[in-house]
């Protein structure tokens, strides 16, 4: 039993996710309520001092810190996006496989994935509904010399608003660990797809909605093991691969691949597996 829980992918980071940054759980509630929350967030940031800010910074960017699972998740989600966009034999590989690719990182948070993709040469735009997380991302992007000439651009904006300017614009849209926090998933998917160029690809990673994930993630983790605060997750917001496929197809996309994802808690490592019952990654292409 416990080993199953330990393997639970997102549990580890969700735990701290919720504990430390209150605004974070709000961050992706997308569509409604965000604006109001955000005003509060801004005031907290304004009132807060340097220490608060650098705490946030450490919180997000300490590789072995509270969000270490999110950092280590780059081990699978970067290859997932990279290989979904470019496929070449080992001999043809180069250090900037994503050069000339415009990628939108929806719900970029402190920029962990955005910077990772920028390192591969991609022109990355990160958007997040939380102003203080965008501030963290902005502050951090100047620190890595390897993206000195290719820093991501960050906007504190929702996807729905972002597409008013950037419609049919991106080669790829990435929504990693986001859709399970969104209120109106239909609108979310529609907006994400709208940001994509025809032929562009969209990448999701998210927990599945299964009895197993309900048992392990919600009941066990919140009530028995107390790994998560009560109410961290709403079971109803989890989306199954079938539902996500349906939403994508309704928006003129063709699903190209789905993989299960497993997190090894003790090793802090991630792995693509066949079973999709806990968490999965989905890649789709926008048809013309």
């Amino acid at each position: 039993m416990s080993s199953a829980v330990l393997r639970m992918p997102w549990l580890a980071y969700q735990k701290i996710f919720n504990k430390t940054i209150a605004s974070q759980t709000r961050l992706l509630s997308s569509v409604n309520a965000v604006k109001k929350d955000d005003v509060q967030t801004i005031t907290t940031v304004d009132k807060s001092d340097v220490e608060f800010f650098s705490n946030q910074m450490n919180h997000w960017w300490e590789l072995d810190g509270p969000l270490k699972a999110l950092h280590s998740m780059n081990l699978i989600r970067i290859p997932f996006v990279r290989d979904g966009l470019v496929q070449c034999s080992p001999a043809e590989r180069n250090l900037s496989p994503l050069r000339d690719k415009k990628i939108l990182d929806v719900g970029c948070g402190g920029g962990i994935l955005s910077e990772g993709l920028a390192r591969l040469g991609a022109t990355v735009t990160g958007i997040d509904a939380s102003k203080d997380l965008i501030a963290v991302a902005e502050a951090h992007k100047v620190l890595d010399p390897r993206i000195e000439n290719n820093k991501p651009t960050y906007y504190n904006i929702t996807i729905e608003d972002h597409i008013s300017k950037y419609s049919n614009y991106y080669d790829a849209v990435v929504a990693s660990e986001v859709i399970e926090h969104v209120n109106n998933q239909e609108l979310f998917v529609k907006s994400c797809v709208q940001a994509l160029k025809p032929g562009g690809r969209i990448f999701f990673t998210t927990p599945n909605r299964t009895r197993l994930s309900q048992l392990l993630v919600i009941y066990l983790a919140e009530n028995v093991l107390k790994l998560l605060e009560k109410g961290s997750h709403q079971y109803e917001k989890f989306i199954t691969p079938n539902e996500l496929t349906f939403l994508l197809e309704r928006n003129n996309c063709h699903v190209e691949s789905v993989y299960g994802i497993l997190y090894h808690f003790l090793a802090n490592s991630w792995e693509f597996v066949r079973a999709q019952s806990l968490m999965y990654a989905m890649q789709a292409v926008k048809l013309n």
Binding site: F53, S54, M57, A135, A139, V142, L143
Partner: peptide, 14 residues
């Protein structure tokens, strides 16, 4: 404010 904070942080890290 945010900008200042960032600058401070940056200087510190550098």
């Amino acid at each position: 404010m945010i900008l200042n904070t960032q600058k401070f942080l940056l200087k510190n890290l550098k």
